[in-house]
Simulated assay, not measured.
Amino acid sequence: MARSILPEGATILIKAITMLTSPWVLAGLSCYSVGMVLWLFALRHVDLSLAYPFVAMSFVVVTIMAVVFLGETLAPARIAGLSMIVLGLSVMALWG
């Protein structure tokens, strides 16, 4: 096996740089940044006690994406739980 001229730690650094410059990682960081800006914008206009429960919508969105893109199936208990999240958030939005 041929020895590399790079120091042993350099290969880890090269792997880290390669991962961080991956288009998927950059797209993920961009989405996270946009989400953070939108969250801060929302907090300027809505009380935290009303806005924060809407973070639970991520459970609903992720489940829908998993069904659509990954072909996952939904058990009746999961559908009931997601329905309760949506119902609770609707009540908060209308009368909160």
Rank of each mutant, 00 (worst) to 15 (best):
R78Y: 11
L87E: 04
S22N: 14
M92P: 02
V62K: 11
L38W: 04
T18I: 04
T63K: 10
V62P: 00
S83V: 06
S33M: 09
V67M: 11
A16Y: 00
T21H: 06
S83Y: 05
P53E: 09
L82V: 07
I64P: 00
T18M: 06
V68H: 01
L26N: 02
F41I: 13
M92W: 00
A56Y: 06
S83T: 13
A56M: 06
L89K: 03
P23A: 11
F54N: 09
I79Y: 00
R44L: 09
A16D: 11
R78C: 04
G88A: 13
V60Q: 04
S83D: 01
L48S: 06
T63R: 08
A75D: 15
L43K: 05
F41M: 10
S58L: 13
V86M: 15
L70H: 07
A27V: 05
A51L: 12
L20H: 04
S90W: 11
W24D: 05
T63G: 03
I85M: 07
G28E: 02
V55S: 10
L50W: 00
F59T: 07
T21P: 02
S49Q: 04
A66W: 02
F41E: 05
L74W: 10
V68R: 13
W24M: 06
V91D: 05
A42Q: 08
A77P: 02
G88T: 14
V67D: 07
M92G: 00
L20S: 01
V62I: 15
V61I: 15
G35S: 07
D47C: 05
V68A: 11
S58Q: 09
T73A: 12
F41V: 15
M57Q: 05
A51G: 07
V91N: 03
T73I: 08
V61Y: 07
S83C: 11
I79C: 01
T18N: 09
A77L: 15
I64K: 02
A80K: 03
F69T: 02
A16K: 09
A51F: 14
V55W: 03
I17W: 01
V61T: 13
G71P: 10
V34D: 03
V68E: 10
H45C: 02
M36G: 03
R44V: 00
G35N: 11
L48Y: 13
V60R: 03
Y32I: 12
A80M: 12
R78L: 14
A77Q: 15
A51Q: 09
A51E: 10
P23S: 10
V34H: 00
G35E: 00
L29N: 12
S49W: 12
H45M: 06
V62G: 01
G81W: 14
H45Q: 07
V55Q: 07
P53A: 08
W24Y: 09
A27Q: 09
G35H: 02
H45D: 01
T73W: 05
L87H: 01
W24K: 14
L89T: 06
W39H: 06
V86A: 14
R44N: 10
C31K: 02
F41W: 06
